[in-house]
Write a protein that binds this DNA or RNA. Sequence first.
RNA 1: GGCCCCAUCGUCUAUCGGUUAGGACAUCAGGUUUUCAUCCUGGAAAGGGGGGUUCGACUCCCCCUGGGGUCACCA
Length: 487
Amino acid sequence: MNVKTRFPPSPTGFLHIGSLRTVLYNYLHAKKNQGALVLRVEDTDQARLVDGAIESLIRTLDAVGIAYDEGPILLKDGTLSSKGEQGPYIQSERLEIYKEHAQRLLDEGHAYVCFCSKERLDQVRKEQQLAKLPTKYDRTCLKLGAEEVKERMGAGEPHVVRLKIPEGETTFQDEVRGSITINNSEIDDQVLVKTDGFPTYHLAVVVDDHLMGITHVIRGEEWISSVPKHIILYQAFGFPLPVFAHLPLILNPDRSKLSKRQGDVAVEDFLGKGYLPEALLNFVALLGFNPTGDREIYTLQELEESFELSKVNKGGAVFDQEKLRWMNGQYIKQTDTVRLVEITKQIGVGKEIDRVFMERIMDIEKDRLDVLINLQEQLPMYISQPDYNAELLVWKKADLTDAKTQLEGMRSFLEAQLDAFFEDRSLIEEGIKGYINDKELQNGNVLWPLRVALSGAGKSPGPFELLWVFGKQESIQRIKNALNKLS
RNA sequence: GGCCCCAUCGUCUAUCGGUUAGGACAUCAGGUUUUCAUCCUGGAAAGGGGGGUUCGACUCCCCCUGGGGUCACCA
């Protein structure tokens, strides 16, 4: 195993659609290279801790079908455990490690202690902004003597540890963007250890990625600007560099970074509406990567085989929900009805409806569904006798009398059939079409009023399917109701 | 504003110097059909601008323009 990727989720407890693609690409890259994927929880900001965030994230990853090789796991009884040799995988449990590393930096002169107050820092920044200068720490505390530092620390004065950015410039290779160079004078003396003793992201990622043997750092483009300071850290520690790959952003329709406010962005939202995990994965995979260019539907397996970091696009991609819906519809059509019903009930649609009945409904509705939750609107007509206007029963090329005649014909025809007739959709279709043929009628004269009698709606699945769903008794009852409306 | 990144139909993309610039979503027009949906067929729709390099540029280089990201003791 020579490749190891990792995924640090946002600490908020839900999986952002952009994060979904990031994990996916990490997963694909690991799989393609027979490597491993590490899930690591970056909870170093005490103020942003969310209760149950880890558990909820693990559940979502599981729901979506992304399996990681190392990281925290959820036991059957709901408690947290972990798998993998390089743990702990939760940063708040690794504080000692960061402390040691920070001390090493301090000892070797790559970092220094800073006592500046938040207020002073804000003040400095404000002045720099006013003077249109780059906003950076002014290195006041770098000038402090060792004695003074020791004394103030001894007195318990609050302090942070800052990275001492050396002179020169930093260049790195990005797998998707090529070579990127930045002048070190642009880089701030990043805080490494906060007043509360917790590390910042920058210290923690570098230390953990190295200690956990991460070979490929694949993450969103918003991180590009912090790579140089990470590299300086790697160099200060004497760690070998991993491969960096920064993914293009996923965008709102207005081309800003995808955010809430312009619609759903959490994977949980989509799952809750009945988007299928495969569809979500397939769709999000194609936002920035394309195996061939003229096909849209790929299995996870196929994506694993064709994935390549060098083929990832550089430009940001707008998240087009319309196309997602289309793709989800494609998946629904080819997904087993039983599973569809299971998911539908899980998201709270048709919970009270008998399973077998529900499966029949799903069978005839799934072709016209793009998102499972939309089935909700169709359900009422199946559960109770619909109410509608008698005129709706009249086909555009016929009249009220004809509608009545045809419905009466249908009623006696159906009454003459055995129950078994209603169990077989092709039998139903053949039977009724035969009837129409024998009587030398037109399809519309019979089928339209029959369909409306059964569904009570201008738009619905066809009459043969509805007959199959309702069975003999209910079907005839509905036809009788229609006839009542006509008399 | 400084720095960094990016740039093909409205959107997601193919093309890796020579193509009628291909596919998909959406859209429009037909067809199948009892309705709707599905499905099928067809149409409209793109290389931001200016310089180079080259026999030849969407493709390579430079500039401009435009868009985005980032400038925290948040990740």
